[in-house]
């Protein structure tokens, strides 16, 4: 086995580990969290604007 074939073997092992990691995390998330929550994202949902509004309200409340 030359150096390049050894690198190829490492690539197979590395790819298997990474895919396995993703698959385990994938099922863990699917089991742990409520499906409605995972599917609750909205198109064009502007998180920053919401946070800014929230902070503004908090500042106004403190004032």
């Amino acid at each position: 086995m030359n150096a390049f074939e050894f690198m190829g073997l490492l690539c197979w092992i590395g790819a298997a580990v990474l895919v396995l990691w993703m698959v385990v995390d994938f099922f863990k998330v699917n089991i742990t969290y409520d499906e409605n929550y995972l599917l609750s994202s909205l198109e064009g949902h502007d998180e920053i604007t919401e946070q800014e509004k929230k902070h503004r309200r908090e500042r106004e409340a403190r004032a």
Partner: peptide
Amino acid sequence: LDPKPFVVFTIAILA
């Protein structure tokens, strides 16, 4: 050299 492990590893690590 067999290119397949490099192809698969590229896709796996970037995914």
